[in-house]
């Protein structure tokens, strides 16, 4: 399975850590687009070329949570799964990201490849279910159900 991931973090080292860890999960063949903050990510984000997004919280210019909100406000692209990868780990912050901003998953730094693999696995399952639902809806409509 091929997966085109947008990795957003102001730290080049952390972007490399996320990308290397994603490859090590062996759950997909990844290609990556990198962005240094939320504003840069919005510039580089093309919904036709990105399948999944991994984004940090604390960044200059536009932080991660504002980036997530901006993506979720656009109904045409709000199906793309977003995973926050951040040093923020208080329950309030996690709730803010998942329940209010609309991120699909949340990983606290430092993380292990195993933890990333579990989250990614859940996200991929969600993507599959969405696809199945969409196509079954389409066939139901064709069948006149």
């Amino acid at each position: 399975m091929e997966l085109r991931a947008l990795v957003v973090d102001d730290s080049r080292v952390m972007r490399n850590m996320v990308m290397e860890s994603l490859k090590r999960t062996k759950l997909a063949d990844f290609t990556f687009t990198e962005a240094t903050d939320g504003a840069d990510a919005l510039d580089k984000f093309n919904p036709d070329l990105i399948d999944i997004i991994f984004v940090d919280w604390n960044m200059p210019n536009m932080n991660g949570i504002d980036f997530v909100r901006t993506i979720r406000e656009n109904k045409k692209i709000d199906h793309i799964p977003i995973c926050m990868v951040t040093s923020e780990k208080t329950p309030d912050k996690i709730r803010e990201a998942l329940e209010r901003a609309g991120a699909n998953a949340y990983i606290s730094k430092p993380f292990t490849v195993d933890a990333l693999q579990r989250k990614l696995s859940e996200l991929l399952q969600g993507m599959e279910e969405k696809k199945t639902k969409k196509s079954s809806g389409f066939f139901s409509r064709l069948a006149g159900n």
Partner: peptide, 9 residues
Amino acid sequence: NVLAGDIRA
């Protein structure tokens, strides 16, 4: 940054 996140939590 990672240390600060844990301290804050």
